[in-house]
Amino acid sequence: MQIVLNGESVEAAVGSTVATLLKQLGISRERVAVELNTDIVPKAGYETQLIADGDKIEIVHFVGGG
């Protein structure tokens, strides 16, 4: 299935969760926040939150800034 991840269209396996997606990307969950179709996914929900075809996902973190 196709999802839109940080603005880019990417392929994701059916049955993916937020947790499996992060693992696949090599991103540690501690320092990121995840939005699924503009709603925040709480960290406690990463294992159970399924991702569906066409979902828009944003994964953000902190960078240098004023």
Binding site: G26, V32, V60, H61, F62, V63
Partner: peptide, 18 residues
């Protein structure tokens, strides 16, 4: 200290400010 919130670079190196 202030920080900005930005998209994670999907093909990023492992280095990050934090």
């Amino acid at each position: 200290i202030t920080v900005a919130v930005r998209r994670v670079n999907l093909d990023r190196s492992k280095e990050s400010l934090l």
